[in-house]
Simulated assay, not measured.
Amino acid sequence: MNNKILHSAVLGALLIGSTSAMATGFVTLPATGVAVPGGTSAYVTCNLTGDFGSLESVPPTFSPGGGLNNTCAVPSRTPPIAGYTQTANTVRTISINNRNIGTVTDRVWRSGTNCIYGARIHMAQVDYNPNAAGNQYFEVNDLQRAGYRNRGPISAAYYFGAVADEVLFRVGLTLTAVIHQPGDSAQPLTSIAPISQNWVDFTSDLNSFDPDGSSLPDSAWLFVKSTCTTAAPTSLTGAIRLRQTGQEGQPNLTITLPGYAPAGANTTP
């Protein structure tokens, strides 16, 4: 995140130059990827107004006329889709080097044999490596969820709820988290981020104290919709991964957590 200021301070000015979304709500993640210049990508794009954190992102809006910047966005999380009922809720602690640095709220909503798996990240301002000089605050560039092979069609969405949230930049069926620098393609080719029909990757930019001097510690609510069973939700070891890809020169790090997943799921690539 570079040269960011609060969403609320610039929202009105930035909305003037924004374009209307064409795919509001849950968007399908094609199992074979999407066509892009030069080949195929695992990713669909959502909200690119902030260039992956390099600039101030513009939150989605909803109105009778259609709203703005709302590709992949839903206007509610209670539930994300009408007719779904919440069936599970757990707050999971994010830890590294035996230090608690944040939380992931993990929820499931169901309608028959369709389920929505939701996650919201909050990063605390805690140095994850006190033995190193200065302060190291973990930055979440990607959240990944496992368990969706043979559970298609898979779709994804996000809900933006507060000015401390960051929007969702892109989402795709892949286990590879790709660093994004200014000028990079928003949709890396499958030669760089191969398709995995078992994993969904959400790209955002979260840090309680960003090295570039500005910070958004919370994610939007990030949703995956898939088929499921009527069995009670259970946690799968290693089903959530938080990835720091080093946008500002930080080391590449991965934190693994349990997470809700469809019955019988696994975490294989």
Rank of each mutant, 00 (worst) to 15 (best):
I94C: 08
Y43S: 11
A31D: 13
V27Q: 15
T87H: 02
V27Y: 00
V10I: 14
N70L: 00
L29F: 01
S54H: 14
T105A: 10
D51V: 11
F62R: 10
F26N: 10
L11Q: 15
S63A: 15
N97G: 04
T103N: 05
I94Y: 08
G39K: 10
E56D: 15
F26L: 03
A13H: 10
A31E: 14
N89W: 02
V27N: 12
S54L: 06
N98Y: 09
T61I: 08
N70C: 02
Y43A: 12
P30D: 09
P79L: 00
D51W: 00
L11H: 10
T105Y: 03
S76A: 15
N89F: 07
T40I: 15
I16K: 15
Y43R: 13
V27E: 06
I101L: 14
Y43C: 08
V10R: 13
S76Q: 13
N69E: 13
F52W: 12
Y84K: 04
V74H: 06
C72S: 11
I81W: 03
P37V: 11
N69Q: 14
S8Q: 11
A82P: 08
S76I: 04
N69A: 11
P79D: 02
G17I: 03
G25H: 07
G53Y: 02
Y84R: 04
T85V: 13
T19S: 15
R92E: 14
N97K: 07
V58F: 03
D51K: 04
I96E: 11
A13E: 14
G102R: 03
I96V: 10
P37R: 12
S18Y: 01
V27L: 01
T49G: 04
G39C: 09
G17F: 02
G83Q: 06
G17Y: 03
R77Q: 09
T93P: 03
G65V: 02
